[in-house]
Amino acid sequence: MDFGSLFTNVVAEMIGPTAIAYALAAIGLNIHFGLTGLINMGQAGFMLLGAYGFAISTIAGWPVWAAVLVAIAAAVVFALLLGIPTLKLRGDYLAIVTIAAAEIIRIVGRSTSLSSFTGGSNGLLGNSFKESFSGASPFPDGRFSLGPFTYSMNDSNSWWLRIVGWALVALACLLVYLLMRSPWGRVLKGIREDEDAVRSLGKNVYGYKLQALVTGGVLGALGGIVFTLASSVQPDSLGRPVTFNTWTILLLGGAATVFGPVLGSLLFWGALILVRGLLRGLVPETILSTQQVEQAGWVLVGITLMLLIVFRPQGLLGDKKELAINVR
């Protein structure tokens, strides 16, 4: 088997749009869970809304910046709709409501009655909304190679998308870094520990939780845009498994850390490609068919992650000391 090309594939996946999209979504989830203790089980819903918001408004002829703003606005409204009734209640309610709401977005998106906007279950073809983003690139058209990696400069699954995507990830990390060491971040951390205590100290806990939910949701929507710009808008490709993968990535990298979600995303997608490649190269076709390799890849990644969580529950970058405190 060709280890060189396997290695190339792994690295390609790690720098690709999927890893970027999940990193953004996991950074958002980190603001919810790692910083504030909110359990959002519908991050995929925020991503899907971002994807729809961006694609539909682009198809309607809006420029890139306006389409991005629409995606952000959709996430803000969604967060407020979910947060206003539930954030005054105990934590579990948010979890239940978000998982249901994300499903509602997906099911409404694929319903035939809306197919003139959303394309129904077929979704929206990439070519119908990618033009304006490619057009915004300052680089010349054509293909470009960097080492073993060759992509078109601007079209579809491009270098331009990777550059913008990683820039977004860097900005999001900077945002989390600044917020985490600020008094605002301190209040969120307090809420994570005991919201009544924070309330007794005069902080409007409800307001802070809403801010956190909105901010993390917007990052999810940006992740959705990146995800969608690499392929198409497909409601079923942003369903529940995406939320669960995002959680896995967050816990793998380390919640409540700045770079944990990014590292988690890189390793998660890298590991998946690596495992599949090894199975394909080392296990004969008669034992595992190509399709079974797909599935077995998920299984092995799942087991690896379970082991990691068992033996390193704070995640790769998490602070063991912080986790070891027994909360009395």
């Binding site: 951390k189 005991d194 205590a197 007794s200 100290l201």
Partner: peptide
Amino acid sequence: ASRVSRSGMVRTFQLTKALSRM
């Protein structure tokens, strides 16, 4: 409660509420 506290009446709890991981 948060506004009560900001208006100058601050309470502590019988079952202590230390923020453990801070």
